[in-house]
Amino acid sequence: MQVALSIKNLQKTYANQLHALKGIDLQVEKGDFFALLGSNGAGKTTAIGIVCGLLHKTKGSVEILGLDQDTHENEVKRLIGLMPQEFNFNPFEPIEEILINQAGFHGINKSMAKVQSDILLKKMELWDKRLDMAKSLSGGMKRRLMLARALIHQPKILILDEPTAGVDVEIRRSIWAYLKELNSEGMTIILTTHYLEEAESLCRNIAILNEGEVVEQTSMKKLLANVSHQVLILESLSVLPKNITQEKFACERLDDHSLQVVLEADINITDVLQDLSTQGVSVDYVRSAQNRLETLFLCLTAKDN
């Protein structure tokens, strides 16, 4: 399997002596949909910034599809499309112009850039706004503009730093579908997000950064298999009895209509529902109190680990 991104012993110390990256090692396979997670200040954006050439590294090496970033700076940049976390376009430029200019920086002439920009503007549902100044767009539209800009030169690796922050649910789902489509066509996608359900539903492999170090790198399936328990909220339209026996599972009565149940790995939900039914509890709705990945994430990034 060819490696799309290889990071070895990457270190970054800022001028204020903040050690943002303490020697991380990461490998992302070609064609992967990879999640890079971590709490605020974990070093995700710093790592991305170094990979994309926005920041200087202190030590270590970065290779993109076998090309060393230090010796093939411009070739590496051609292979990457970056959608950053912060808005970084001129708000006084028309949207279409932003895309065509970005293509121009990659050496794509205007007529070819126009074709690609038309496709992306339609895909991102920005076609009607193409002649408007970027400042007139809503937050979600600005994010979609940055995604379109990252794709304008058809990169091999797409790096997304919080791509759907501030985007409404409907558009978020359509972006997810588009990202899945791009990935199925062979594009390697590296994603950082605060929406852990996003990472869980899109990504096959994952790395978790904490305080500048990689605390976990594995496949999403393996990671989720480590979840020892799930917390569920069971809701009933009728009033719940005051005393519920907790022999097979732990539960807590939250109010007259809801019950929180901790489900260990060896117990399934059907057993719980049957047990509750024998106690005269009819459950109308079941929902997860916490996303599975969120449970693991909190565990892995806890201060005392």
Partner: peptide, 10 residues
Amino acid sequence: HSIEELLVSP
């Protein structure tokens, strides 16, 4: 920060 458009380009 639109300078980043150039910095990430070849």
